[in-house]
Simulated assay, not measured.
Amino acid sequence: MLWIKAFHIVFVITWFAGLFYLPRLFVYHSLTDDEAGQARFVVMERRLYRFTTPSAVLAVSLGLWLWLGFGFRGLWIDIKVALVAVLVAYYVYLGHLCRELAAGRKRSTTFYRVINEVPVLILIAIVILVVVKPRF
């Protein structure tokens, strides 16, 4: 089980790197006006999304394996799983935003800046749940 934990950590870190950086690319993309810059950001966003997708799948899969293997119980793990489900939905939404930007449809820079903060808040909540394991 130790090797599963190690790989799980690696894939979670890789996935979160994408979750943190992709919305930042959206901010930069929304600030760019020239056509060459737009095309460059489309390529960067698409590559980052495609690179982090296997990490996301493996992080969630190995997390489920560890959860079922260790048999964690309690409301804290249920909340954690729900937060991970929100992160997965958020990640799918980032893919939608990638396609929107590739099609030339931009939103405001403020929108992308707000979207950029979502994974930070969820990560903080998950870390608190895992460390404290509150009894509700």
Rank of each mutant, 00 (worst) to 15 (best):
W3I: 09
Q38D: 07
V42Y: 14
A102W: 11
R105Q: 07
R135M: 08
Y90C: 13
A85Y: 14
T14I: 14
E45M: 06
L129S: 06
A59L: 13
V132A: 00
P134Y: 00
I4T: 06
F72W: 08
W65I: 02
F16V: 10
Y28T: 15
A36S: 04
V12W: 09
D78Y: 07
V57D: 10
V81E: 08
I13V: 09
R40Y: 11
L121K: 01
R113L: 06
I124T: 12
V81I: 09
A89D: 04
K5H: 15
G63L: 12
D78M: 06
Y112A: 05
L83I: 05
L97W: 13
P23D: 11
A103Q: 02
A82S: 00
V12D: 15
P23V: 03
G18H: 14
E100R: 10
L121D: 11
V114K: 08
L19C: 03
S61G: 10
A125K: 10
H96K: 08
L31C: 11
R135F: 03
A103R: 10
W76I: 01
V43M: 10
F7E: 07
L62G: 14
Y91E: 04
W65S: 02
V42N: 12
G18I: 03
L68M: 11
F51H: 03
R40G: 02
L87W: 08
Y91M: 10
L83H: 02
G95C: 03
L83A: 08
L97K: 15
F51V: 06
V118L: 04
I77W: 04
G63S: 12
V86T: 05
S30W: 13
L87R: 13
F26S: 07
F20G: 04
H96T: 05
A56C: 03
F72R: 08
T109G: 01
E35A: 04
F26C: 05
S108Q: 05
G37A: 12
L97V: 04
V60A: 05
Y112P: 00
F20S: 01
H96Q: 13
G63R: 15
F41G: 05
A102S: 10
T109I: 14
R99A: 05
R105V: 09
L48G: 11
F7C: 08
M44W: 10
K133F: 02
G37Y: 06
V127S: 01
L66T: 14
S61E: 07
E117K: 14
V27Q: 13
Y93H: 02
E35I: 07
I79G: 01
A36F: 13
L68Y: 11
